[in-house]
Amino acid sequence: MDPYLGDIELFAFDFAPSYWMLCEGQTLNIATNQALFTLLGTTFGGNGTTTFCLPDLRNALPMQGMGMHYCIAVQGTYPSRN
């Protein structure tokens, strides 16, 4: 089953799986990530015209230095309001 777009999960390895990105405050282009932008907007930064940012959850890890990372689904099922 596909994750919901924008879903954030903790993974126990040093990389983001396919269709996920690390939650490290990266700036993304709205034109290439329109669906994700509709969910996040500029909540975590960006200018809202051409860019937006992912959340930076590096300091929220339960165990620092253990190879764990929060990742956000950049592809998946668009969440429904129903």
Rank of each mutant, 00 (worst) to 15 (best):
F44T: 12
L57M: 13
H69Y: 06
A73C: 10
F37P: 01
P62L: 02
S80E: 13
T42H: 01
N29R: 06
W20T: 06
Q34A: 11
A73S: 10
T51S: 11
P79F: 08
L57H: 03
S80D: 10
T42V: 12
C71K: 04
D14E: 11
C71I: 12
C53R: 13
N29M: 09
T27E: 15
T49Q: 05
G76D: 01
G46Q: 02
N59T: 14
Y70D: 03
C71Q: 07
D56E: 14
D56M: 06
M68Y: 14
P55D: 14
L36V: 09
N29F: 06
I30K: 04
A60Y: 01
T42G: 05
A35I: 02
I30M: 13
Q34W: 08
G25H: 05
G41N: 10
G45R: 01
T27M: 04
A60Q: 04
N47Q: 05
Y19D: 13
Y19C: 10
T77L: 12
A16M: 01
G45E: 00
I72T: 09
M63Q: 12
T27L: 06
T32R: 05
M68K: 07
H69M: 13
G45I: 00
H69P: 05
L28K: 10
G41A: 05
N59V: 05
M66V: 13
A73F: 00
C53F: 03
T50E: 08
A73R: 07
N47Y: 10
T32G: 05
N29H: 03
Q26M: 03
R58A: 14
T49G: 15
A31S: 15
Q64N: 11
F15V: 08
